[in-house]
Simulated assay, not measured.
Amino acid sequence: MPHIPLPDHLPGITGLLEYRLDTAAPIRTLTQLLLRGESTLTEGERELIAALVSSRNCTNFCNAAHTKAADLLLGEAETARAVKDDIETAPVSEKLKALLQIAALTQQSGRAVSPEAVERARVAGATDREIHDTVLIAALFCLYNKYVDGLATVTPTDPAYYQTLGDRITGRGYVRPPGGYPTPAK
């Protein structure tokens, strides 16, 4: 049960964003920019960062949502699972492994990101912007995970919900639909 009254039909962060449209606007803008904006990292790779951090933070809603989004963007369901199980054996490039390790370190503590981890990413071909954006996405999802869990939002357990949410995330991104989210008829 959420700690504050939230729309029943909008679980997870969606209900929180509808609760405070004024604070939601910059959150949505930043998320859209980082996960769907121009980047040398693919949208699927950026969703992998979000899924990894959410998984490590044990935030079930965000983990399921961003895993599904990564699966849809990558066109398969094995890579996200493999990344969350063991970054080093996952079927991703050495550059992405290094960036995912930076994301994992950021999730632990910003100060855990070592010069060695950054150097590994650079040697593997990561640009300064990719390193920057990886840390920012990881830090942002730590915030989102705490936001969702700190207010005890509803977490659906039906995989069909996350299929629909993944379709919405990959199709529309992180922008609010015109007019918001309609209340379902009872």
Rank of each mutant, 00 (worst) to 15 (best):
G110Y: 09
E43A: 13
G44F: 02
G125E: 04
G75Q: 10
A104H: 08
E76I: 11
A65H: 06
D133S: 09
I102W: 05
I137Q: 01
S93K: 06
L143A: 12
V92F: 00
L96C: 05
L105G: 04
L52I: 04
T155R: 08
A117N: 02
C62K: 04
T89Q: 12
N57E: 13
T106R: 10
N145T: 15
P115W: 09
V83K: 00
R122A: 09
Y144C: 04
L33W: 13
R36M: 11
L99D: 04
C62T: 11
A82V: 08
R46P: 01
T29E: 14
A98W: 03
L72Y: 13
K95Y: 05
V92I: 09
S39A: 13
N57I: 07
L48V: 10
S109Q: 10
A112Y: 07
K95G: 02
G110W: 05
Y144V: 13
V92Q: 00
R36W: 11
T89S: 15
E116N: 12
L33H: 14
A126K: 04
T134S: 01
E88Y: 09
A121S: 05
V113Q: 01
I137N: 00
D71G: 06
N63S: 14
A104W: 01
G44A: 13
E119D: 13
A139G: 10
E43Y: 08
R122G: 07
R120E: 10
A50H: 01
R81F: 08
Q101F: 06
A112S: 15
A138W: 00
Y144H: 09
T127G: 11
E38N: 14
Q32V: 02
I131K: 07
A139Y: 01
